[in-house]
Write a protein that binds this DNA or RNA. Structure first.
Lengths: 214, 214
DNA sequence: ATAAATCCTGACCGATCGGTCAGCTTCGTA
DNA sequence: TACGAAGCTGACCGATCGGTCAGGATTTAT
């Protein structure tokens, strides 16, 4: 079972990737209950039996995708300190979440679907890693407020504001596209929306910017 | 078929209400595909056949609920004029959406689920009523910016910001509750979150408040 | 009292669900 | 070339899906 890491993908690697991509699409669209292995198999261009041969079960496939999403998510804003510049950190936070919405919208929708159904598969993760993630960042925000670097806003509400506003461009893309006559959101849209969010949120929290003067 | 509007509800009215409530819960949690009439019937305490007797079909039941939600939603911020005070209107907008998240969270989640699956049932509504709703409000915001009453922010992005930030407290309630050690969101939580959003968004858009002075 | 309308439900339908399995083909290695 | 491992799949399983229907129970109107 030695892994040579050869450039040519093995049959397992190749098929698992196709299955994961197809499954992410279907789960993101229809949720856990609403997704069918048959639909995933069709999207991947693989017989249903072969899908189950690789992933074992629907439950295991779903959990694998959820964990992959959580891992990607927790890697964000990994190094943050009270000595950093508030405006820079908040901007980096908003920009990186915005980039996640742009590059991995189906991951975001998969996660949203899991939350909507009551988070039955990642309750422990939520109450574990994510809670810690929020506490650490919130503590830094609190320090900044105490030092007068920003208004004394509730740091947890601030994190939720940034999450919701950025995820919206992935989760509700259909609505945005439909309302604004677009065919899809492109690079310029994410850029201008990101600019808007950085401007409003940073100013709204009373953060002092170094380059305040024009 | 005369309707006397008697205080005593007819069998049809009574059962339809129980079915609608149960269906809203199940659809909001599991989406259209993932919801089953059996589960709805069980939640309503009514035999499956009886559910279908009243609502006709799963599709019709779902569409009825969606329309009810859209109707409730479009009633918001119905009278808005360029002569109104920007801060007051924005605050009223945020507060009323926040109240919807508090009083009708399952409606919000039902709608979110419909968007996540690509809005197959209300594409026309989206491109019709909602688009108009946004255009009218956006035009007012634009006028305010031209008059210098607020910063020249993109009014459509502003509307999406308010939507996302407020709906978050309904759609992602599970996540918020899990992360913040709460058992559920209560009146005080919605109040403080609403205060936070009003403060940050109004200040972030550079809106002049009459009561600026402390 | 009685006929009509409405309410209600168990039994049933074909389709699809997640999952199993026997048995085939293909691949890697000695 | 031979052989075990891995890849692959059609057929099949019991359960559940949305929906139909015959027919009994109950309510309403005359």
């Amino acid at each position: 079972m030695d892994n040579h890491d050869l450039p040519e993908a093995t049959a397992r690697e190749r098929n698992e990737q196709r299955i994961f991509e197809a499954a992410e699409s279907v789960f993101a669209r229809h949720g856990y209950r609403g997704a069918s292995i048959q639909a995933i198999a069709a999207a991947a261009g693989i017989p249903k039996s072969n899908v189950l041969y690789y992933v074992g079960s629907k439950r295991r496939l779903y959990i694998t995708l959820l964990e992959r999403t959580m891992w990607r998510w927790n890697a964000m804003l990994s190094d943050i300190s009270v000595d950093d510049d508030p405006a820079e950190v908040l901007e980096a936070f908003i920009r990186s979440k915005m980039r996640l919405s742009q590059t991995h919208p189906r991951s975001s929708r998969l996660f949203a679907n899991e939350i909507l159904q009551g988070a039955p598969f990642l309750k422990e993760s939520l109450f574990g890693e994510m809670r810690k993630w929020v506490e650490v960042r919130a503590e830094v925000f609190r320090h900044w407020a105490e030092r007068g670097l920003m208004d004394p806003v509730d740091p947890v509400w601030l994190i939720f504001l940034i999450w919701s506003a950025t995820q919206h461009y992935a989760d509700f893309e259909t609505q945005i596209v439909g309302i604004t006559h677009r065919e899809a959101l492109d690079e310029r849209d994410f850029q201008s929306a990101g600019d808007f969010l950085c401007q409003v949120i940073i100013k709204g929290c009373g953060v002092r910017r170094r380059d305040d003067a024009i």
